[in-house]
Write a protein that binds this DNA or RNA. Structure first.
Length: 777
DNA sequence: CAGTGAGCGAGCTTCCGCTTGACTT
């Protein structure tokens, strides 16, 4: 072997290995190989922000293998991605493999074709140190922000919290959207629509027309309907306008995540996992990309496929320009490797995602759709307002034959075909309706719409969108959740047969599925960071530092100087906040307790969100109660807070012993004679009666009686019990699985001892995380 | 997964961006 080629991805290594001859060995380094030391800050600020690098623990084996091979070859070709991070990886490789300048060459290609690779090999260059320095600046800045800001949170808000250039802004977006929704004032107005009969060639066509404006009140809407009663309706204008629709560009990571979410209901993480499998099996190109570019080969293949399937009329090859802020375009757009292949996998998820990618790619190379829009204006003899009917005729479907991008907003109903109407023609009115419509608050973010917003702001990279979503949920700043929605009544007026009837209708509103909600911790942390570190929290912070990084990359600025300029004010603010601010808990005064006259607060406590009566300075100690799962610090009322203190509550006496109702980690419960009895979640411990309590206790006691299947006189520490999922072995507080080989009652004490000796207790293997911060409501 | 309903306190937590791999009854 004379040559070693190093790329980032193993799947890429495999493909390229096939293109190059026997003199080339292609290996992968699996992304970054060195990173800042994790033990400390990893940056020596005194020495001009000198980074302290270490080979990452999981890359030691990779590096030692590459080192061994590189010692034996004539030339090492560093073929990492051609972007800022890729350039840095090449530099780290050269450094950690100890390659002298004449032992390696830097090459790069943007598409994986034989031609592109041969071209790269014949045009080698040296490592671009300006670009590497831009990456070092990015890396060091992120480390400083994260590792100086997080400890401030530990001291001033709560231990173990985190903050960073990307995650803190992502959380801010969700927090502020929730605030907008809370402050949103719903406005009602009446929308008027009419149905007319049009007679054309002896047949009656029903058309729908709308009044462009709205009425603020029911009275006005009603008055309008009265005016229409008996009026004449005449066509005043009929306009025909041609229009065209163009296809969307091929997929990038972000647009793939959005469409897979809307069309297939995939989470961002699932989209990436499925795409990874398609990539590894050679069905699609690389899935982490910000480019909409297609290779010449791909465009040629698409053209042939479109010609074959739909005919040349449908083909329109085109290249799209990337508009994304900060795009680095190291790869192609996400597309099928073979555009003439329609099947990619037996796995339904993979196949569905593949079809989506296939359609999007093919559609992007197809002709525009042409449409004819008709707008008919209908005058009212008794009023100056006019009805408008809109019709749409698809003259040529073009790319719509294959694919239409969906949108986050509700789709406007597209017009239907209108029968021909002449100016002056009188129309017969069937009915006119006035429907009360309400303004809608801004939509909560979904995973995918958050990714879209982050991309617009230039925050995060294709490889990090899915991890960001994961991080902010793991840190308990954000919760992906559903809300049931509620009924709302609205007024509906109809003018028909010269009569106006008024009815109430109801609709379901506010239902949410898989939406992102901020948690109390998320809100408190965001408020704190905004107050003390507004420059980092600025939505344009990333974009403005990116501009600096670009200037480093083009040699106009020196990287450590850029860092110095950032660090000076930032660090001053860190010190300032640590020394001069109190602990922050997002405290909110709810009012006073009517019984004691003491202040009541809602705030974030050591164990999560809670309410408090009385102040710490009072002679009597304050009382505390945790919030329920569906309550939040921002919205809890004095009444709800008072309810929280009503538990535990004395329900009454059974046989002169007290029964107490309360809510615990696992929901509402009763306590009687030192034992616990769960109350079904549908019932309320605040109102449960003694009668009902007796029932629940009796039921559980009956069940417990039947619980013991077998006991051993010689060893009372071993029992066979009946649990929710069948029989199991209990031994001194630990539980063991019983083999299904015989009936539970047939096990002997010796059998049991053997199971204990050989088996592992289920308690120890438990991996479920127990949340302690909140009671479930 | 097998019933559960606490709360010491020392020591640790944390960033973003590249890339896949692999703890089991």
């Amino acid at each position: 072997m004379k040559n070693l080629v190093i790329v980032e991805s193993p799947a890429k290594a495999k493909t390229i290995g096939g293109f190059l001859g026997e003199n080339f060995l292609v290996k992968s380094c699996y992304g970054h190989v060195r990173d800042l030391s994790k033990t400390n800050l990893g940056v020596d600020i005194e020495r001009n922000f000198h980074p302290i690098y270490e080979v990452q623990a999981d890359k030691k084996a990779v590096i030692s293998e590459l080192k061994k091979i590189s010692g034996k070859v004539d030339m090492v070709w560093l073929a990492t991605d051609e972007d800022r991070e890729g350039e840095a990886i090449s530099w780290h490789l050269a450094e950690s493999l100890g390659l002298s300048d004449n032992r390696y060459r830097r090459i790069a290609f943007h598409e994986i074709t034989r031609k592109a690779i041969e071209n790269a090999i014949s045009n080698p260059r040296s490592i671009d140190m300006d670009l590497v320095n831009a990456q070092q600046a990015r890396r060091v800045l992120d480390r400083i922000v994260g590792f100086e800001l997080s400890p401030v949170l530990w001291k001033k808000v709560k231990p173990s919290l985190s903050a960073g250039r990307v995650q803190s802004v992502a959380v801010r977006l969700i927090v502020e959207r929730e605030k907008e929704i809370q402050q949103f004032k719903t406005l009602a107005a009446f929308k008027v629509a009419a149905i007319f009969d049009v007679i054309h060639m002896g047949a009656t066509h029903r058309i729908k027309a709308e009044l462009p404006g709205k009425f603020d009140t029911k009275q006005e809407a009603k008055a309008f309907l009265s005016l229409c009663n008996g009026a004449l309706f005449t066509v005043q204008k009929s306009e025909v306008k041609p229009a065209k629709k163009s296809p969307a560009p091929p997929f990038t990571t972000s647009t793939l995540q959005q469409e897979a979410s809307r069309k297939l209901g995939f989470s961002v993480a699932r989209t990436m996992a499925v795409a990874q499998r398609l990539y590894e099996s050679g069905k699609i190109t690389y899935m982490r990309t910000d480019s909409v570019n297609l290779s010449d080969t791909a465009m040629q293949l698409a053209k042939e496929e479109i010609n074959r399937l739909y005919g040349p009329k449908y083909s329109k090859p085109r290249q799209f320009a990337t508009k994304t802020k900060g795009a680095q375009e190291a790869h192609e757009a996400i597309r099928p490797v073979y555009l003439n292949s329609h099947e990619a996998s037996d796995d339904p998820s993979e196949q569905k995602l593949y079809e989506l990618i296939w359609k999007r790619t093919i559609a992007s190379q197809m002709a525009d759709a042409s449409i004819e829009r008709t707008q008919v204006t209908i005058g009212i003899s008794s009023h100056s307002e006019k009805f408008v009917a809109v019709g749409e005729v698809l003259l040529f479907d073009g790319f719509l034959k294959v694919y239409l991008e969906s949108s986050d907003e509700d789709e406007e109903a597209t017009g239907e075909i209108l029968p021909p109407m002449k100016v002056g023609q009188e129309l017969h009115m069937q009915e006119i309706t006035a429907t009360e419509r309400f303004s809608k608050h801004p939509a909560r973010y979904t995973e995918a719409s958050l990714v879209k917003k982050l991309e617009e702001l230039g925050i995060g990279r294709p490889s990090t969108y899915a991890p960001i979503i994961n991080t902010i949920q793991k840190r308990d700043y954000v919760l992906k959740d559903n809300r049931p929605g509620e009924k709302r009544e609205y007024d509906y007026l109809v003018l028909k047969n010269k009569k106006i009837t008024e009815t109430k209708k109801s609709e379901n509103i506010g239902q949410e599925k898989n939406k992102l909600f901020p948690t109390d911790i998320g809100i408190v942390v965001t408020t704190f960071l905004l107050e003390h570190f507004s420059p980092i929290m600025d939505y344009h912070f990333t974009a403005s530092v990116e501009k600096e990084f670009d200037e480093i990359a083009t040699g106009k600025k020196v990287w450590n100087k850029v860092l110095h300029e950032f660090y000076e004010p930032f660090h001053t603010q860190i010190v300032q906040t640590l020394t001069h601010t109190e602990k922050f808990s997002g405290e909110r005064l709810l009012g006073t307790d009517p019984q004691t006259g003491k202040n009541m607060y809602a705030r974030l406590g050591k164990f999560g969100p809670m309410v408090q009566t009385g102040d710490a300075e009072d002679s009597e100690k304050p009382r505390f109660a945790s919030l329920k799962k569906d309550q939040s610090l921002d919205t809890i009322t004095l009444e709800q807070a008072l309810d929280l203190f009503k538990l535990p509550r004395k329900v009454g006496l059974i046989l002169e012993k007290e029964v107490v109702a309360s809510t615990g980690r696992f929901g509402p419960y009763l306590r009687f004679e030192e034992k616990f009895y769960s109350i079904p979640r549908t019932e309320d411990p605040l109102t449960i009666t003694l009668e009902r309590a007796k029932e629940i206790i009796a039921e559980k006691q009956e069940k417990d009686k039947n619980k013991i299947i077998k006991e051993f006189e010689s060893n009372p520490q071993i029992k066979i019990l009946m649990g929710r999922w069948g029989a199991y072995l209990w031994a001194d507080g630990e539980n063991y699985k019983l083999p299904k080989t015989q009936k539970p009652e047939d096990f002997s004490l010796k059998d049991c001892l053997n199971i204990i000796k050989g088996g592992t207790s289920t308690k120890k293997s438990r991996t479920t995380k127990v949340k302690t911060s909140r009671k479930k409501g």
